[in-house]
Simulated assay, not measured.
Amino acid sequence: MNELIDFSHTLIFAMRDALTPLISWEAINSFCNSTFTTSLVGALAGAFAGAVAAQNVADKSKRRDELIKEIRNTNTAIALTFSIFNLMFAIKKQCVAALKINYDEEKDRYLNYHAKLNNGQHQNLEPYALKFDLRGMSVTSPPTKVLQDIVFTALSSIGRPVNLVAALEEAVGNLNISITKRNELIALFRTEQFPEGADFEHMYLGVPYRDGHINQEYGDIVAAIASYTDDAIFFSRLLCQDLREHGLKISSNFERLTKDRSPRITEVDFKLDRYDELLPAEEQYATWFTAFKPVQEPKPSRWWKRKIQ
């Protein structure tokens, strides 16, 4: 057994002595400076550089296509939003504004008339004749779902635009519910099936009748229609502006990447005189201007400061 161990040691030492000249510094230096080695290293370096360059070109081309697509989607979203704005504005101009103003004026006229009667001011008072508006309204069908799909899934925008789309869809939905409810109340009015002691004036104007009972449902619905219409107008207008700002940012990214001129971003002009009178006051929506802070994109760090993950 000892003889076998001695033989193994002898063999190991012999192999070490035989290989030592092959792995000497001179041998390594000679191998590294050989034509074969320098050719191989040069070929590998060239192949790596070519692969990196090709990948960069592919990445740039892909990013360019993505930016072009987002610019197109942004323009589509602006067009849809502006169409919703125009629809809501037309509804207010043609129907809702007059409905709300006339209703409020008629209720004030009724209350003033009866206040004079209660104060004994009967002289020169003409009999009161109620002025009412029982014209039905059609529910709206703006493309809010399509708009939501684009903003939520096809754009990289975050923050206020996303919230505006959700608020706009909710406003339109509530407006349609209110319109439907008003149409139902109008149908009930025409049947004249009122509670005991109440007549059309009481139910239409929401004023007290027998024993102080009161039903203000119709007046509340009129107020809701006016409020939701204003909401939809405001949200769609602000969303148009936010989408344009987003589009301009994407356009800037495109020009910085490609050094080419970016496709045009749709611009909407809300400064026309026909809009001014009926646009809801921005003061009613102050939180939409203060609750959302612009997202600051982080500045890229210098290459020598980047940590290897």
Rank of each mutant, 00 (worst) to 15 (best):
N2W: 08
S8W: 08
S8H: 11
L11T: 03
M15T: 10
P21Y: 01
E26V: 09
I28T: 01
L40Y: 07
L40D: 01
G42Y: 00
A45W: 09
V52G: 11
N56L: 14
A58H: 10
K60G: 02
R64F: 03
E66N: 02
E66F: 01
K69V: 12
T74K: 01
F85G: 00
N86E: 08
N86C: 06
L87Y: 06
M88E: 04
K93V: 08
Q94G: 14
A97P: 07
K100R: 11
I101G: 00
Y103W: 07
R109M: 04
H114G: 03
A115W: 07
L117I: 15
L125C: 08
L125S: 08
P127T: 15
K131F: 14
F132W: 12
V139N: 12
V139A: 14
S141F: 15
T144K: 08
A154K: 14
R160S: 00
N163H: 13
N163Y: 09
E169C: 02
E169S: 03
G173V: 02
K181A: 12
F189R: 05
T191L: 11
Q193M: 13
D199N: 15
G212R: 09
E217F: 14
D220P: 14
D220F: 15
V222G: 11
A223M: 14
A232C: 11
F234Y: 10
S236D: 01
Q241I: 10
Q241N: 10
L243Q: 00
H246K: 05
K249S: 14
S252R: 12
L257F: 06
K259Q: 12
R261L: 15
Y275H: 04
Y275F: 08
D276F: 09
D276A: 13
E277G: 03
A281W: 02
T287P: 01
F289R: 03
A291K: 08
K293N: 01
I308K: 06
